[in-house]
Amino acid sequence: MNLLETDSAALLAAVRRVLIAKGVLTDAEIADRIAKTEQASPALGARMVAKGWLEPDYRALLLEDGTKAAETLGIMIRGAPPLGVLENTPLVHNLVVCTLCSCYPRAVLGYPPFWFKSAAYRARAVRDPRGVLAEWGTLLPDNVRVRVVDSTADYRWMVLPQRPAGTEGWDEAQLAAIVREGDMIGVTVPDGARLREKTLYPER
C-alpha cells in the first residue's frame, strides 16, 4: 500500500516520531509553535481596524503597508507573507478568497475558519460574490461594486471595513469589539451597519 494513504492519525504519529528521533525537531518546538499560533486571533486585526478608523495617519499606513501597520502594534509578521489591506468605501466592497488553496492573513486573524477553506466558498466567491454575501445576510446597495480579491501568491489580504454609523465618540476598544473575523474578509460588515440593514429590510 502507498505509504501516503495510511490513516492520517497514524501517519502523523509516525512522521513525528521519526522526525524527533532524527533530531529534526523536538516536542518542545511543536508545543511552542502551537502556543504562539494560538496567540493570533481576529482581535489583532480588529485593533488595527479600530485604530485605522480613529487615526487618519494610521489608516494611511494600513493601506500603504499592512505589514508595517501590524508591527507598529507589536503584531509579529516576520517570517509570514506580507500583509495587504483593502479598504471598503461607500462605492466598493472587498471580498477575499483563495481559490487555489486557503491563503489567509493568519498573522492578524489567526487560524482560517472552516468555511474559508471549503470548496463551496472557494468556488463561488469569484463567480457569485453577491450570492455568497447573501448567505451571510450581507446585502449591498445597488451602486456598490464588489471587488473579489483572489489571494493567489505571496501576499495575504485583509479588509478594512467602513466604520458603521452610530459609533461616533467611541474609543478604540469599543470600536475593536464590534469588528469580527468575517468583516475583515468581507463576508460581513460591522454590526452597526448590519443592524441598520435589518431594520430597513426586516423580511430578510
Partner: peptide
Amino acid sequence: HDLGGVSKFLCEPIDKE
C-alpha cells in the same frame, strides 16, 4: 484543486458553522 467558479460547487451552500 483550482476551484474558482467550478460549476459543480456553485449550488453547494457554504457551511458557516
